[in-house]
Design a protein around this nucleic acid. Structure first.
Ligand SMILES: [Zn+2]
Ligand SMILES: [Zn+2]
Ligand SMILES: [Zn+2]
Ligand SMILES: [Zn+2]
Lengths: 137, 137
DNA sequence: CTTGACCCTAGAGTCTACTCTAAGGTTTAA
DNA sequence: TTAAACCTTAGAGTAGACTCTAGGGTCAAG
């Protein structure tokens, strides 16, 4: 199949597929006489594998590692894959906890403000942002 | 005070302060004979205001809105500030919920894998990434 | 034989918020 | 006087993952 069909089947854009090729993540199976990229079912499998890995939150760099494991499983061990996943879990948990802090700060701001159509001279949001460094811990 | 002192007092870097000036967020109060940027206490207040807003998660674009409210409070109403905060809350909640989904997907992957030093031929992580589109809902 | 839907390349642009560099001028203290 | 520690500018670089453009071939249908 040509790149357009692969795009449709895999849920990735044509541009993205070419980008992945440049990044050595997904090479075309062959080229037609007119130099069109041609892909087989295995390439479709790989494209989907990449998409799914990305959806789960892995970076392209991490996806590359998964692809190399996948390409030669006997040469790799479970620990490699699991380590990637566990590190990612730590990252994501970290990000979530940062965002939760942000969220609670935002709620404090928002709750204190009347949100009405009166002048902002008394606005507690602006006031709160003003007092730079005296947090109650 | 000069930019280096403002940087120290505000907790922002000299580079960042100049960047903010380029973005019209924080102009120097004056220039010395030798063309050095000079700042007064009010500028320090503004610098801290920006830093604090950034820490809470607002973008520079949003900070610019807060600054314009702050610069002329009588011309603005609480609703403007509160709307920004509320929209941000929605954004952050959205992001958190996405990350939670990602996290649960990662846990599923990670928990299923033995993580041992055996060949990855049976690795459930690679297998799970393989089956592109048949999620149990 | 032309139109439209494909495909190709190399390379630039996007986003956000910095961060740094090069090449210089100024101030301060020893 | 000289060295350190400041300051200036314009502009480039960084991250990550695309996304798009210009300028061109190719292919099937009517
Ligand atoms: Zn109010
Ligand atoms: Zn208010
Ligand atoms: Zn295993
Ligand atoms: Zn495994």
């Amino acid at each position: 199949m040509k790149i357009g069909e692969l795009a449709k089947e895999s849920g990735l854009s044509v541009h993205t597929l070419r980008y992945y090729e440049k990044q050595d993540l997904l090479l075309a199976t062959a080229r037609s006489e007119s130099n069109y990229r041609l892909y087989d079912q295995q390439a479709l499998g790989t494209a989907r594998f990449i998409r799914r890995s990305r959806e789960i939150g892995f970076s392209l760099e991490e996806v590359a590692v998964f692809l190399s494991i996948r390409a030669d499983k006997p040469a790799h061990v479970c620990a490699e894959a699991k380590t990637l996943a566990e590190n990612k879990i730590v990252d994501v948990e970290q990000k979530i906890s940062e965002l939760k802090q942000v969220l609670s700060a935002l709620h404090k701001l928002s709750d204190a403000c009347c949100g009405g159509n009166e002048s902002a001279e008394h606005c507690s949001i602006i006031d709160a942002l003003e007092q730079s460094d005296q947090e109650a811990s």
